[in-house]
Amino acid sequence: MNAVMTKKKKKKIDWRNYVIFLPGFIFIFIFTFYPMAKMVVMSFFDWNIGFQQVSPFVGLKNYIDVLNDPIAKIAIVNTFAYAFVTVPLQMVIGLFVAVLINGIVKGSVGYRLGYYFPVISSWVVVALLFRYIFSNFGLLNYVLVDILHIANEPIGWLSSRWSSLFAAMLLGIWKGVGWNMVVFLAALQAVPKDQYEAADIDGANRVQKFFKITLPNIRGTLLFVIIMLSIGAFNTYTPITVLTGGNPAHQTEVVLTWMYFKTFNAYKMGYSAAFSVIVAIIIIVITVVMFSISKWRRGEE
């Protein structure tokens, strides 16, 4: 008993630790942890905001509603399609540009600034701009119809599901390439030069050097970029809202726009909460799988 007591005493933690830790902890507890828990609770109720509103317990009804809702399915499919197209393309193009910029001597700062320009522009601004460019009599249709003669008549880009999503994806890639370029450029510059010199002596060509030296060396960065871009893709809200508002007939909704609509236009809080929980589960499962794959592959080598 005595021994345990002294052991405990030894481990007694300096109160100053809590002075540093607690303010921040209380802040995130109130503003994120508590709402996160609340969301799970809400998802089992027909939740109503407002004075003297009752919120009856409905069990799994919200979850069943979400799973039976064709629009929820469309929103999830659209979000995944957006992620599957924009994440790899941004990475490939960004890496390609980074390799090119890494290989030039003069003017690299200028190119870097230029490619980074869309990244710093606000989503609202560039989404409005794309809405204008993709409108029926906009610049893109003009180029396609009257200059390149690819299309016979103006295409209603923003009036059907996949062409709207195409516009949104193009916007996402266009805006994201610069970020990828900067991150990859830094990673490329950290690759040890002597490895390339050794490869030169062995007579390796450009492509071989890229796949045998560059890629393995920037693997950590690749994983980081995939995670960041995937988070970003699931966060897509503004481009869709501004470009299409989820229309026509909710065909272009993504996860967040649909959640937003259900919350603030249809006042289905419980539904939205259940939808959030389902999306959260999907994201967590994907992340865990992605991490275990990368761990497993590292272990294999």
Partner: peptide, 16 residues
């Protein structure tokens, strides 16, 4: 929390 989309908690946060 970092992995979740920012707006995903919008309902409880809005109530808060």
């Amino acid at each position: 929390v970092m992995l979740l989309p920012g707006l995903a908690m919008i309902i409880p946060q809005f109530e808060l």
